[in-house]
Amino acid sequence: MTDGTASRRIAMPASGPDRDAGFLKDVLDGLGRPVKTLPAKHFYDQRGSRLFDRICELEEYYPTRTETAILTRHAGDIAERIGRGVTLLELGSGSSVKVRLLLDVLDQPAAYVPVDISGAHLEASAARLAADYPEIPVSPIHADYNQAFPLSVKGGPERTLAFFPGSTIGNFSPEEARAFLARLGRQLGPGSRLLIGVDLKKDVARLEAAYDDAAGVTAAFNLNLLERINRELDGTFDIAAFAHRAFYNGDLGRIEMHLESLRPQTALVAGVPFRFQAGETIHTEVSHKYTVEEFRSLGRDAGWLADETWTDGEPLFSIHLLTFQAPPSRFRRTSGA
């Protein structure tokens, strides 16, 4: 998530034995920009993952329960369309809760392959699932699914189903989403399937409440990113001097989350100083919302053709089953794909 402006040049400090070099680079690059940003993927350390699990249980946060209800209602139809012996690949598996609805009904799945950036959370979730489904091989992959990762699927592309729930695709800009989907299709191959959750456009008040709950759990989740920098990168952020902000940007069709500096201040990251003015923000996340046809069009541009779409009654949320063919030539070399 970048704004296209150049960051100031910062000498990269030594990562040290207890520092994640990639995390450090992302933080220094993002905070060095004229409009400060931090990549949303770094929310999900062990504490951040637990906080997100709590968010998913909140009354205001409709996406999880709505997507779960759609999956529960239509799991049998999905399984019938997928057929026997599929390898189920889950991107950003987290606690692997929703995938159980599929594993309960799929016909003799060949394997379950959860992929997640949070190693400890991944291993714990994979162990629980392997114990509950002893007949299904569980092969966790600790990786950033935004990057290519080694993958070998028994039965080939036509026996592969990627599962990408939670409307995580909304965290990409439409251009980034198109590039990501095209790259995923090329990695999985023609004939592979994708079952993906997509949040729909709706009343602004309902959208904003979902990302700024009354109990403050989402605020804690957002602020944990600064706490993680303090814990892991020798940061000196005064957490009480920042506030969670979330709002819907109608022009861009997206929720934006920010951390706002409440006063002029300076914070260090691995010894590197960053100054903040009162009211200045760090942009931490976007969540794009689509209509059903807008997302189908985006998928087609990336080479994914719509097989079926399921929604709830209002509708608040959608689940799409897509099949990969190939992206149109104008998208085959999209930057970052």
Score class of each variant (00 low, 15 high):
residue 128 R to D: 13
residue 157 P to Y: 01
residue 119 G to R: 14
residue 106 L to G: 07
residue 92 G to A: 01
residue 159 R to F: 11
residue 140 P to F: 02
residue 136 I to M: 00
residue 167 S to R: 06
residue 108 Q to F: 02
residue 81 R to C: 01
residue 116 D to K: 04
residue 168 T to Q: 11
residue 93 S to N: 02
residue 91 L to K: 03
residue 81 R to D: 02
residue 128 R to V: 06
residue 131 A to P: 06
residue 100 R to G: 14
residue 112 Y to S: 07
residue 142 H to R: 14
residue 150 P to G: 05
residue 132 D to V: 05
residue 132 D to A: 15
residue 105 V to I: 11
residue 107 D to V: 14
residue 161 L to C: 05
residue 152 S to P: 01
residue 99 V to F: 04
residue 162 A to G: 07
residue 99 V to M: 06
residue 101 L to Y: 00
residue 116 D to W: 08
residue 150 P to D: 09
residue 138 V to Y: 01
residue 89 L to T: 02
residue 157 P to S: 14
residue 85 G to F: 13
residue 105 V to H: 03
residue 125 S to Q: 00
residue 98 K to F: 10
residue 148 A to Y: 13
residue 97 V to Y: 01
residue 106 L to M: 09
residue 93 S to V: 05
residue 161 L to K: 04
residue 137 P to W: 04
residue 118 S to P: 06
residue 145 Y to M: 12
residue 144 D to Q: 05
residue 158 E to Q: 12
residue 102 L to H: 07
residue 162 A to Q: 06
residue 92 G to C: 08
residue 139 S to E: 09
residue 124 A to F: 01
residue 149 F to E: 03
residue 113 V to F: 10
residue 139 S to N: 02
residue 142 H to V: 13
residue 95 S to R: 08
residue 137 P to S: 10
residue 101 L to R: 13
residue 143 A to Y: 13
residue 167 S to W: 08
residue 88 L to A: 08
residue 113 V to K: 08
residue 154 K to Y: 04
residue 123 E to N: 08
residue 85 G to K: 09
residue 134 P to F: 03
residue 149 F to I: 08
residue 99 V to Q: 09
residue 81 R to M: 11
residue 152 S to Y: 07
residue 164 F to Y: 14
residue 161 L to N: 10
residue 100 R to Q: 15
residue 138 V to P: 02
residue 130 A to Q: 08
residue 161 L to R: 04
residue 83 G to V: 12
residue 106 L to T: 04
residue 160 T to H: 05
residue 92 G to M: 01
residue 160 T to S: 15
residue 152 S to L: 10
residue 92 G to D: 03
residue 106 L to H: 01
residue 121 H to D: 01
residue 159 R to M: 06
residue 142 H to T: 10
residue 97 V to I: 14
residue 81 R to T: 07
residue 140 P to C: 03
residue 157 P to D: 00
residue 132 D to E: 14
residue 119 G to L: 06
residue 145 Y to E: 07
residue 98 K to G: 09
residue 162 A to Y: 06
residue 155 G to L: 04
residue 114 P to A: 11
residue 143 A to T: 14
residue 156 G to W: 11
residue 115 V to R: 05
residue 157 P to E: 02
residue 153 V to T: 14
residue 84 R to E: 15
residue 128 R to T: 11
residue 154 K to G: 13
